[in-house]
Amino acid sequence: MTGLFELLGLGASAELLSLSGWGGNLLRGLANSLQIAFGAFGLGLVIGLFGAYGKLYGGKVTRDLLAIYTTVIRAVPELVLILILYYVGSDIINKISEGLGGGRVEINGVAAGIWVLGVVQGAYATEVLRGAIKAVPVGQIEAAKSYGMPAFMIMRRVTIPAMMSFAVPGLANLWLIATKDTALLAVVGFNELTLETRQAASSTRAYFTFFLAAGFLYLMVTLCSGAVFARVEKWARRGQPSLKGGAR
């Protein structure tokens, strides 16, 4: 037993992972990852809502543009998209800055990460929300119309609440993908959890310890998210008899 303990180097690991040491770096990386995941997921939802409404009710040009957006984003590997969006994004900002007579600007890593992943998330969210909106029974919307609700109020008071139960499972998936996609931002040098882990591991040669710790942190995020989304789904399904209950 102690042999195994020694073999895995757990005693040394505890020291390595202390908060004042590399462990603190890992947690800071996690905080950065979560910050980006939150932002990207939120931006993705906003894009997705506009995208879904545009695809369902927009004119021909709007629909075509959205079709290109969702098709391209979903076809190209995320890593490639991140490289493209990151370098194109920072290039455009620098061009504008130079055009306005300023110098090169330092790109804020968090903002860049949110923008890059948010654009990716938006494409998937567009499809999730479009499907959910279409699943809302037309009668619910007609009732709202027939009582004089204006279009925006119908969206806010009827369509969005009614579609939530259809959207939540898909959105929960998107959130988990967002948390894990933050790891891809390591390629553009952003200090999220995976990059912090790699740095800690290669400085100390304790690869096993640090990647296990990182894996554990990602797992915790997933488990907590699962609990939160279970509650959100229960709320979104209010008024619908549960499938298990066998109610009418």
Partner: peptide
């Protein structure tokens, strides 16, 4: 005039064959 339609609709209450109550509301 969409505004006029919305105003007039509030004076005409419709009752549907399929009820069309909002299912997420009590």
């Amino acid at each position: 005039n969409q505004k006029q339609i919305e105003r007039i609709r509030t004076k005409l209450a419709m009752v549907f064959q399929q009820f069309n109550l909002w299912t997420h509301r009590t």
